[in-house]
Design a protein around this nucleic acid. Sequence first.
DNA 1: TATTAAATTGAAATTCAATTTCATGTTTGA
DNA 2: TCAAACATGAAATTGAATTTCAATTTAATA
Lengths: 143, 143
Amino acid sequence: MTKELQLFQQHVARNGCHQSVKRERVLEIFLETQSHVSAQELHGLVRKKYPGIGYTTVYRTLKMIADSGLAVEVDFNDGVKRFERKLGRDLHAHFICTKCGRGFEVFDEGIKKISLSLAKRKKFSLQKLRYELFGVCRECSRS
Amino acid sequence: MTKELQLFQQHVARNGCHQSVKRERVLEIFLETQSHVSAQELHGLVRKKYPGIGYTTVYRTLKMIADSGLAVEVDFNDGVKRFERKLGRDLHAHFICTKCGRGFEVFDEGIKKISLSLAKRKKFSLQKLRYELFGVCRECSRS
DNA sequence: TATTAAATTGAAATTCAATTTCATGTTTGA
DNA sequence: TCAAACATGAAATTGAATTTCAATTTAATA
């Protein structure tokens, strides 16, 4: 059993939920993703391998995955919620291209430091942060 | 005529739009706001003083205000788009309390520097950035 | 193992803000 | 003044998020 599955099962148990094979399948596929996915997109991926799993289950499981701390939400400002794996302690930003709509990942440590100090200053307990940059990507600015 | 109105009119003209008294009214009320408003909320405010202005006009005008650079969008992750005045060059963050849902403003300069250097590194032309912190505010963490 | 209360599932329904439509009213340039 | 282009807003549409509910599955207990 992977460390992620273990964490997920713990979260499930802690919330008085039953085990479920389908949820494990959804988690499995989610963990294979390399970047942000929406519930719809994840459902598409899940269906390829496990056709018997419906959208609602994927939707709800994705939420549970995020609640369990294995995923974080990212927002490209297009009305669709996307999630991506939370990899270790890496905090990263997203560049969202306002022309082509793609999202690029950028890693940086400074943001975290600043965020923690701001939170401390305001006596705010920090749960998560969102840091996204909008602009035009290199390719789009050529054309 | 205020500097803001002038900027707005310029933007309107540049886009081949006609003048409109109603739009000026909406801008007037928007400029009186002290923090983030949704289109619905702004419409509520507008109606108090100018009952004859409909929601759609407020909605569209708010969008134009943002396009003109006089407002920026902020997102409390509750599915509602909010806008607030863009004051000078001040970049500021928002703390959104996940318990009471309120948003608090925090000012900081470091974020901007980091953002610009990240954009440069990725050859990305930066248009705007979003920086929001989620957690529990001081009051809510008491109870 | 049988029972059964509680949780899961998913198709369909609902919700809700964002956005668009379209018929009518207004602005602007000639 | 006239006509083309734009503005307006009530109503309709869109679309993703979320909920409902009846059927199915899980797991605790006898």
